[in-house]
Design a protein around this nucleic acid. Structure first.
Lengths: 360, 360
DNA sequence: CCACAGATTGAGAACGTTCTCACCCAAGTG
DNA sequence: CACTTGGGTGAGAACGTTCTCAATCTGTGG
């Protein structure tokens, strides 16, 4: 432990008891509101506490009760609007029932995620909401569960883990979005996954079983849905139209330029999150092309700017806040002793048609 | 305490010690890495710990050391990109030195802020980063400081509070932005503050001393800077061009429509945050007006979409991440015993000229 | 062999709560 | 009057660590 120890001067229950002329047991009862205390004692204790500026020490309380009233929350990137909105939902659900939130950014880094799980376990959080990194460490998560800390997974799933999950039906949502583009007459639709380059070959040419395995991750499930729509429409998926070249805006811009330079360029693009959509728009501007007249665009997530820009963006809106709130509620139910079977809750998405996708 | 008590089965140091055949004191030394332990004992203890899946209980540790290694963070709205980015800075600074972050959303609600301060005090956080609500409760904050918990204020200041503060020079930044619009030939520049309706009369007609008092809040300081620029340019400020009609996008859109319906409408608008700018853009679209040919626009904060939309938005960029990181570092310095005088750090802003503001 | 420094060890206190348990006492009951 | 009932009370254990301190062990130099 580095650093000098700061010793605060906050009075303990014992001091308050002495001041009030009663035992610590009675003072504890008066302050904690349990057991039975005479009116006289209670008033004496409360007055003494007020006078001394007594604040209960919740650490000591937690030692006894075995509850920290703290929920750990692990997200890859708090700056991502998806996670900050979901976090809001989690925090609200927690506060509503008297819990606080200990937040850790994992930065999409597996080592950090493992470290965080370890730290939060030592802090004895009552439960954990985890939005796992794409390659989440099943064993590390299972170890937490085995230690008696319930876990709820948000957005992404981890096969084989004993935990509740909350998310959307990614495959269906992506399929629906793709179908809408196809219905508008687009025959060559590109997919911007934002995923890692390593993922790309798997996304574009999954084997028969490959598609199923893919569907475990969020990106994978959406890619599978995109594929589903193409196949059902009798269109042969073209690997070069599936891009997994990074999740930053610049990556998406570069990917867009590459796509539009193809001999047979796409006439529509499906972006798997709103940051990627920004990259597309930026690239189009740079190329002197216009949306939707030259290229149609549909994105996941209804960012606050989606409605305000020109053209207003057509999006697949997820109930992000509700996802977080539901995860929080589910977790607190477990913490408070629910022994129900693990549930996997899929909340409905909503396609919001604006002006960025038109018929060809 | 509501809910049933979950009793985890995690082994304590005592169990580990027994398994290893040593005393709890020795086991503690071996596990904690303090004091001196023979190689043989240490190995026995570590092996036993591994076997039993021992995880130290940081609550018990905190009881003894007086340090929770936890920083409390109070923000009005975690969904606001400003705060989520600043939070990222705080969290990174904290993690770097081995601290965790307990996050509370105050929702711009004074009662919630007070409640949160109380809860975090009881949790014995080692320090607090607070982005106070506009009408922050000085006394509640001072009580925390008096209880021995150092506080660092982020973005907004609270006059008379014994705390470090980190932010930008709001008055100068707003003055600079306004001057740039004036230099482009605009003579009637509107200001969208996003503040509360109650604030408006104060903003538009501050008395001589009023300006000084105003400058204490972020919105107030920026309004003062806007005024400074006008006055220096010899332009009489027009109260009806200063809008404080709410901080949501729709509020800004409505305000814009009102402004442009004036007999002598503004030719340029300065929006005090990026969400308000979105409202302006949305209103312009609705009115069939174009930016910048019909109305110029400059906003605070370089949102991710600012560069990608049409036209790319000219902005006053704050070093948001650095503000958070600096607040975190300053706080940890205090926690670890720095007794320096309170500092008020102003980080530099940067005007990014893009295409939303042109000469008239 | 003895004295001594330094490493190693364990008993037990401490942190600030909640919980268990026995005890006291006043008020009722037969 | 003896006997129960139950609210009110305080002593002390418990939670799981770290810290203090005295005791024991080890090896070294004389």
């Amino acid at each position: 432990m580095s650093g000098s120890v700061r010793r605060t001067t906050m009075p303990s229950i014992e001091i308050v008891a002495k001041e009030a002329g009663v035992s610590t047991a009675t003072a504890g009862r008066a302050l904690g509101g349990y057991g039975s205390v005479s009116r006289k004692s209670r008033e004496a204790v409360l007055a003494a506490a007020e006078r001394l500026g007594y604040r209960p020490n919740s650490l000591a309380r937690s030692m006894i009760t075995g509850l920290t009233h703290t929920l750990g929350v692990l997200v890859p990137d708090i700056e991502n609007p998806f996670f900050s909105r979901a976090l809001r939902g989690i925090a609200d659900a927690a506060h509503e029932r008297g819990w606080e939130v200990l937040l850790v950014n994992t930065d999409e880094d597996l080592a950090l995620e493992r470290k965080a799980l370890s730290v939060l376990t030592e802090r004895r959080v009552d439960g954990l909401v985890v939005a796992p990194t794409d390659v989440a460490d099943r064993d590390a998560l299972q170890a937490v569960v085995d230690a008696g800390i319930p876990v709820v997974l948000l957005d992404r799933r981890v096969p084989g883990l004993e935990a509740d999950t909350v998310g959307i039906d990614n495959r269906a949502a992506a399929k629906d979005a793709t179908e809408r583009l196809l219905k508008l007459g687009h025959r060559s639709v590109a997919l911007l996954t934002g995923g890692d380059e390593k993922l790309r070959p798997k996304l574009s040419r999954p084997g028969l079983r490959g598609v199923e395995r893919l569907a475990a991750t969020t990106v994978g499930a959406r890619a599978a849905g995109y594929r589903d729509a193409l196949v059902e429409a009798g269109i042969e998926p073209r690997p070069e139209l599936v891009s997994a070249e990074g999740f930053r805006r610049e990556d998406a811009a570069a990917a867009t330029r590459r796509l539009l330079a193809l001999p047979d360029p796409p006439t529509a693009i499906l972006a798997l999150d709103s940051l990627l959509a920004l990259g597309v728009l930026q690239a189009l501007r740079g190329l002197g092309l216009r949306c939707p007249v030259d290229v149609s665009l549909v994105a996941f997530d209804d960012a606050d700017w989606a409605e305000a820009i020109s053209p207003p963006l057509s999006v697949v809106a997820q109930p992000i806040y509700e996802l977080g709130a539901e995860a929080g509620r589910l977790l607190l139910d477990r913490v408070q002793g629910s022994d129900k079977r693990f549930t996997h809750r899929r909340l409905p998405t909503r396609f919001i048609e604006r002006e960025s996708a038109t018929s060809r």
